[in-house]
């Protein structure tokens, strides 16, 4: 093919591409007008843009001068003379500053003080953590309720059953979410010192993973293990939710339970340690 032929073909291609693009744009407007449809909108927009893109690429590759052109690079560093001249001019101020060293120091103090003062408003961004990471909403005698707010009775769960529970009046509280598991039908001792924490086989662990705080949502009944879906830490539900695998380093805190005279489950007290992921002074 001769050069003029090739050029004519390229011109035709570009013209068709731009034409298709224009039609697609009209279609796009029409589709929108008719109420819109996600897939059709996407496709028409793609054709409208793609036609333009294709056209421009053909223009660039076939119709415009290709070169190659050569451009010399500038030398990046300035000449010695220019640098020296600049330094002299800089000296003008610097010399003055050096002679007024004391003023410079005072300026430093003032600027520093202003900087520090400017940081103070950051404090408005959030409350004092206080002991909010160390306490949940569980209290001595809190009624154990499920996600609908219904109290939990001894007969609510079969052996092997699980339920997410909250202290009454604090549904959906992130730090108080607790996993109630019935692992047996008689008292369970998960660890020494927790002899009366799991009446009638009901054990309750904080549902907030000690690794990075995801809800530990899965209970594998056959092996009596809890599994965190986020990074696959698993905890032994029989032995005080001791971590078995994965990145979690600490057991899930256990909530001491009791059964009241009406057969309702209640907490004996709050958790005896901060729930959830670790932080610097957690042990203090």
């Amino acid at each position: 093919m001769s050069a003029p032929d090739r050029e004519r073909r390229a011109v035709n291609q570009v013209a068709v591409a731009f034409g298709v693009s224009a039609l697609a744009s009209l279609g796009l407007a029409a589709v929108y007008w008719q109420g819109g449809q996600n897939q059709v909108e996407g496709v028409l927009l793609a054709i409208a843009l793609g036609g333009l893109g294709y056209g421009f690429v053909v223009v660039a590759r076939r119709l415009l001068p290709q070169g190659p052109y050569t451009e010399e690079r500038d030398v990046l560093p300035s000449s010695e003379g220019q640098v020296a001249a600049f330094e002299t001019d800089l000296e003008r101020g610097e010399g003055w500053l050096a002679r007024r060293g004391f003023l410079l120091k005072m300026l430093g103090v003032a600027a520093g003080a202003l900087g520090v003062a400017a940081l103070f408003p950051l404090r408005s961004l959030g409350p004092n953590p206080g002991n909010s990471l160390r306490r949940t909403k569980w209290r001595r005698g809190s009624l154990v309720v499920d996600e609908q707010g219904e109290p939990v009775r001894v007969r609510t769960l079969e052996v092997g059953g699980v339920l997410t529970v909250f202290p009454e009046g604090h549904l959906e509280r992130e730090d108080s979410q607790t996993l109630l598991i019935r692992i047996s039908d008689e008292n369970v001792v998960t660890r020494k010192g927790r002899e009366d924490w799991a009446p009638e086989g009901y054990v309750a662990y904080s549902k907030v993973c000690t690794h990075a705080g995801c809800p530990v949502g899965l209970y594998q009944q056959d092996v009596k293990r809890l599994l965190c879906p986020c990074h696959q830490s698993s905890f032994d539900a029989v032995e005080g939710a001791r971590p078995m695998f994965g990145p979690a380093t600490r057991s899930l805190p256990q909530l001491p339970l009791m059964v009241d005279d009406n057969g309702l489950l209640r907490a004996q007290d709050d958790y005896d340690e901060p729930i959830g992921p670790g932080f610097w002074d957690r042990g203090r």
Partner: peptide, 27 residues
């Protein structure tokens, strides 16, 4: 030195083409 195409008009057309093609794929 630098050897290649000039900004105007060749590179301009090429890069505009690339912009529209990128946008087309995303659309």
């Amino acid at each position: 030195n630098v050897v290649g195409a000039r900004l105007w008009p060749t590179f301009m057309a090429k890069t505009l083409g690339l912009f529209f093609l990128t946008f087309a794929v995303l659309a």
